[in-house]
């Protein structure tokens, strides 16, 4: 894990233990929504009405969200259509387009549960998205 994430790990784990899950989902969905408004993440129509969870294994953080009318929203129920689990560094590497999801999966570093077809749509959508310059700038503060 990179040094920044290592330093953040313990406080984030404490945060996960104390902050109610809905609040985490709220912030995560807000982050995705900002990325969408910045025109980086424009979800394909197949994601509409579906729910997702991103599980950052090393931090013990689980963020659930859904996609409604092309916008990202927090998702309150525990059950989701698709859940992806990986380490924070691996998620960041995938977001930056530096890591192949199948490679992570073969190495058992990425776990997929729920609707596999939806998982494929999400993966292919992210793969096809051009990485904007601001993402690289942001990522350079957090080298994966």
């Amino acid at each position: 894990m990179n040094p920044v994430l290592t330093r953040l790990q313990a406080p984030l784990q404490r945060l996960a233990a104390h902050v109610p899950a809905p609040l985490l989902s709220l912030h995560f969905a807000a982050g995705l929504e900002i990325a969408r408004r910045l025109k980086w993440l424009s979800p394909p129509p197949e994601l509409d009405g579906r729910s997702f969870a991103i599980n950052l294994r090393d931090l013990g953080l689980r963020h659930a969200f859904c996609c409604r009318q092309g916008q990202f929203r927090p998702h309150w129920p525990q059950a989701v259509d698709l859940e992806l689990s990986a380490s924070t560094a691996d998620f960041l590497a995938m977001l930056r387009g530096q890591m192949d999801a199948d490679t992570l999966f073969f190495q058992r570093r990425l776990q997929i549960s729920g609707d596999t077809e939806l998982g494929l749509i999400v993966k292919n959508w992210l793969d096809a998205a051009e990485r904007p310059a601001w993402l690289d700038k942001l990522a350079s503060c957090l080298p994966a």
Binding site: G97, Q98, M99, D100, A101, D102, T103, K123, D127
Partner: peptide, 15 residues
């Protein structure tokens, strides 16, 4: 042999 092919249209740009 005239060409070497790589499999994997389902893989990401990183691969």
């Amino acid at each position: 042999v005239r060409a070497i092919k790589i499999e994997g249209r389902q893989r990401s740009p990183a691969y």
